[in-house]
Design a protein around this nucleic acid. Sequence first.
RNA 1: GUGAAUGUAGCUCAGCUGGUAGAGCACCAGAUUGUGGCUCUGGGGGUCGCGGGUUCGAGUCCCGUCAUUCACCCCA
Length: 426
Amino acid sequence: MLTTAPRGTRDILSPEVEKWQYLEDKIRQHCHRYAYSEIRTPIFEHTELFQRSVGETTDIVQKEMYTFQDRGDRLLTLRPEATASTVRAYLENRLYAQPQPVKLYYIGPMFRYDRPQAGRYRQFYQFGIEVIGSQDPSVDAEVILLAVHLFADLGLRDLEVHLNSIGCPQCRSAYRQELRAYLKGHLGKLCPDCRARYEQNPLRVLDCKKEHCRQVAGQAPELSSYLCQECREHFAAVQEYLESLDVKYQLNPNLVRGLDYYTKTVFEIVSRELGAQAAICGGGRYDGLVEECGGQPTPGIGFALGIERLLLALDKGGIELPGREPLDVFLAALGSKVQAPALKLLYQMRQHKLRADKDYLGRSLKAQMKYADKKEARYVVILGEEELERRMVLIREMATGKQEEVPLEQAVEIILEKMGGVADGK
RNA sequence: GUGAAUGUAGCUCAGCUGGUAGAGCACCAGAUUGUGGCUCUGGGGGUCGCGGGUUCGAGUCCCGUCAUUCACCCCA
């Protein structure tokens, strides 16, 4: 146990972590362009916050939260999602007093106690955005567009945008009554889970994958025909905007989402290649959430995108993200007498933004060359006692094997020249 | 929480009906006493996931447990 990470967690290290960094950079670029600013909220919150916002009847709250008591007897929970935290921060920091809407994004770990499987972890990472303070349907379109734009930029094809509107509390409750009345006559055909849903949250029956339940759901009254005028107009406008942006989507009347705070627009972006964990991105509007958390009635919308799943989809799509970076220079320093000048030379190279490294084990030149080769060093600078006495070094270009002797003092300059003027300094 | 499969060196795996572990790659060193990528030679490494049981003897059989994978539930 001492040497095993807890179930559903894992370490992300070198060739993979560079892909994460690349992805995070891309995400930040997009958010920057769309004029979102980052928010970093705590990784745990008062348990109450999630119970109230995500909803008492949801699976997240009922069985997936990491909840604990701290030494001051506070009941806390590792965040299972970040919308609740963002809304809390919006209220706590009085962001409603700033120009509206407030556009925020986050990238970070979330925690859900669930059986791990491909694309599902107990600690997983989400990138998400939230727009709080506007109910305009163009925001809905922009939020979806940002995700679609990001995916396109990464080269992902064959993703499907599923779209639906689940209405506002008013029209939804009217629909819920109708649906319940309909389902009542078919209870015998439903699976045990759906019979429970019938009581707690009948809309979720629409989303069941069991064949019998789907048949029942297929004949059920449609939510879209119960939408109030405002919700209907809003939804129509969202679709119109998406079409004008050339965003392909499919209407999915059975898409209801598992969190209680959603209203009106809900959507998912799925990859058919990901098996059971097909949803890469999911989100929707939550016009009642800010008020539910104690603020003034304030509309909001956002999505969350699973980083692990996005990486999986990229992998399945044959899209290779940049991995480990090669070394610009490896410095082979031979003998204890040259270590001090070698360290100094290394420092100079790094000051000029060269990615440079040396041997730290007192190995033979041969071993150091081998190491340099493994690290894909572009140049090897060889500094031995003999060279040091004459204030010279050897510069070897690894790709060609060509090598020349140059004055120690000019070595950095000459390497920079060979590399085309400047190191990229990443 | 439910069902199923898997778990042997850093990695990928072999190990027949039980007789106390092996390959390839990787790593280190040497062949070239100061020069990489190819080749050759040698070397270090394994609580056979963990715990218990059966047995003269278990990697191999049984039970439990942990982990991974897949599906369900649900979601990112």
